[in-house]
Design a protein around this nucleic acid. Structure first.
Lengths: 225, 225
DNA sequence: GTCTGTTTGAAACATACGTTTGAAGCGCAT
DNA sequence: ATGCGCTTCAAACGTATGTTTCAAACAGAC
């Protein structure tokens, strides 16, 4: 099969280059020369650069969302009616990501960074693609979060989910650069699993902080103790 | 003075466009046509597109870092020898950001998003510029954080600071969009000050979670309880 | 071997970019 | 009024991008 060889080589090269440089900063010529295929191959096999971006996400996200769904199934079965805890829910997500079969050792971190970029770079088409393609597992995750934090007001929960999302997306989207700094400053090396192991407790603690009680707007900025 | 008019119009337009589209996705032609100035004006007044990016950051960051320094001065004076608490440190930063004189009501969120982009988009020159221009207040903030969390290992503290950064930059940068969603779904309205009032407790709680104890790499992914 | 549909290849396409150029316009001392 | 900085302007520069074209190479069926 000649086709799938070319297609896969393009996807591999694109995935890696997108992750380390961003989408618009990566040209088709970089991709095709890294993949050692002809420039026209991208438009022949995928149709356009945007479609290639979608294909890169689809190749990872489709099996991942299946894995995630069954992880949620298993978790809910194990909990037998009572809603899973916050830690269980967050770990089910992390687990599914880390356990995914990887093309290579950089697999997860590459993809975490791509997801971060998807949120961060305002590529309208990508956002739309992801929303209409993977709304189901996303919605289910949100529902589980809600059931795991019944003590929170809807507004607090809403904002704290954004905080979690931000911490995750941001960290993952710059994790290579961050790791370089860490390696230089502290002389240690960190795997994605370890980052996740540090991130989840941080998120869980923040999520479970006492429900925010707002003072009158006027002196919101005053509390210093 | 005709010059400063053109210069400011360019800076205003660039700031807004960079924030909503990113750096490489924003062309000089978009900027100059939004600012209603000639295309060549950017290279005449700033020298290059990169220098313009630096100027956009400098215009906000220089007065901000002065404000921040004096906020830290005041805080340390008030604490009189003993290190400020985590809450005090975070509030000093938040205060300084919120209290900055704003060009318009979107001022803070625009700049939060720019800071997020600076970290996220791999613009080497920007990173270098920010590091060598504002290393002092940044380093001081780091030192305060370190003194406020002596129980954390250096590695844990490093990563948790990244998590805080991410949650903050992400939330503030998309707060306009998020507020729209919130208004539609929950029928409430939120000011930047209120978001900060929700964010700081979240960050403080995450920061003060128990120091991460890592199991052997092999079973890092196992804990589900 | 020849035909057929699919895949590759080198080259060109149109467009957009950041930057440079050189003339024109302006305010203001002299 | 003249001359001198500074600023604006329209136009062009060279380069890089995504996409298209069309001929050559290829594989498998007959």
């Amino acid at each position: 099969m000649a086709q799938s060889d070319t297609v896969d080589r393009i996807l591999d090269a694109a995935e890696e280059l997108f992750a380390e440089r961003g989408f618009s900063e990566t040209s088709l010529r970089m991709i095709t020369s890294k993949a050692k295929v002809n420039l026209a191959a991208v438009n022949y096999h995928f149709g356009s650069k945007n479609a290639l971006i979608h294909a890169v996400f689809g190749r990872f996200l489709t099996p991942f969302s299946a894995t995630l769904e069954s992880a949620f199934d298993e978790l809910e079965a194990r909990c037998d009616g009572s809603p899973p805890t916050l830690n269980q829910t967050l770990w089910a997500l992390t687990e599914s990501a880390v356990r995914m079969p990887q093309r290579n050792e950089k697999g997860i971190s590459i993809f975490m960074r791509l997801l971060g970029l998807a949120y961060t770079q305002s590529q309208g088409h990508l956002r739309k693609f992801l929303e209409q393609e993977y709304s189901e597992p996303f919605g289910r995750f949100m529902r589980l979060l809600k059931e795991a934090t019944p003590q929170l007001s809807a507004v607090d929960r809403y904002w704290r989910i954004q905080f979690m999302l931000g911490a995750t997306a941001f960290t993952m989207s710059s994790s290579d650069a961050l790791q370089d700094i860490l390696r230089n400053k502290l002389g240690v090396d960190t795997t994605v699993q370890e980052i996740a192991a540090r991130l989840v407790p941080f998120l869980a603690a923040g999520m479970q902080a006492q429900d925010t009680l707002l003072a009158s707007p006027a002196d919101i900025h005053i509390p210093v103790a």
